[in-house]
């Protein structure tokens, strides 16, 4: 069943047009940077964007920082929202269930397929950004001894690769949190669009509350609070505090919303 769901996801034209769209934005940014050579001043704009002018190998991280706040969560919310509500709207849910596919099994297969989407999307973005970055922006001079960390010290290529992979993993976990919320709403909502919009509403509310001083007591528990903390992985030494909190928070979100999705779906009357 898991294989069937993944193949459905990979065969859907929408999956690939979404990935293409997400990929287009950082590529456009790279082209503009290469043409104009006008980076944001250090300390402003998306993370790493001022650094990539001197070293294109950092561009995957810049690309991640560009798509993580908005593009990626939208795509994940739509894909996860589609999971159950989309089958229900198409009428195929009732046929899957009488095939029979167990409800738990179906939910797990849907989750795995959404996670695959997350992984594929992030990897595509990272690989394209690496290729585009090194081609257009060039690599730092090898004699300079690696790249400069956010803290100003030097990082070896090996260290940079490891930390980049960690950052990609962290981004995937953050998107898994989004996927869990989306999957839960997908078992509740009548339409896939409703589930996707509901998920986005949660994320937008969270982003908004993060800017509000009065909401300070809530802020450590908001789902988007630590999303961009992957930047801390590039400090020297690594600043683990926010990353750890981010991982823990996302795990709690995933557990709570998947549990709710399961509880709701098991007892749901499938009437559409």
């Amino acid at each position: 069943m898991i294989g069937v769901e993944i193949s459905k996801m990979l065969r859907s034209r929408r999956t690939w047009s979404t990935i293409l769209l997400i990929d287009a934005l950082p590529t456009l940014v790279a082209v503009l940077l290469a043409l104009t050579d006008l980076g944001p001043r250090p300390g402003t704009g998306p993370a790493f964007l001022s650094a990539v002018l001197t070293d294109g190998t950092l561009f995957p991280l810049a690309a991640l920082a560009i798509v993580l706040p908005l593009f990626l969560p939208i795509a994940v919310a739509i894909t996860a929202g589609e999971a159950i509500a989309g089958e229900a709207q198409q009428g195929t849910l009732r046929y899957l269930l009488v095939r029979p596919v167990g409800r738990t099994r179906l939910l797990v297969a849907k989750l795995v397929s959404v996670l695959c989407f997350v992984v594929v999307t992030i990897l595509v973005v990272a690989v394209t950004a690496y290729v585009v970055g090194t081609l257009l922006l060039g690599q730092a001079d090898a004699s300079a001894g690696g790249v400069t960390s956010v803290s100003g010290s030097q990082l070896s290529t090996q260290e940079l690769t490891l930390r980049t992979l960690l950052a990609l993993g962290y981004a995937m976990l953050c998107m898994t949190g989004v996927a869990a919320i989306g999957l839960f709403l997908s078992t509740v909502a009548e339409s896939p669009l409703g589930a996707a919009l509901g998920t986005l509403a949660v994320l937008i509310a969270s982003t908004l509350l993060l800017t509000l001083d009065a909401a300070q007591s809530l802020q450590p528990y908001l789902p988007t609070r630590y999303w961009l903390s992957f930047v801390d992985l590039f400090r020297d030494p690594i600043l683990w505090r926010d990353v750890e909190r981010g991982v823990l928070l996302q795990l709690v979100y995933v557990a709570v919303f998947l549990g709710a999705a399961w509880a709701n779906f098991m007892t749901k009357d499938v009437t559409d």
């Binding site: 069943m1 069937v4 034209r13 009732r94 095939r99 596919v101």
Partner: peptide, 26 residues
Amino acid sequence: AMVEGPASYGQLSGRANLALFDASGP
């Protein structure tokens, strides 16, 4: 079973739909 009209994945062929349906369950 056929409940309240047929349903399938519209972008796939009939054969592909049946194959997917067959692969879904035990």
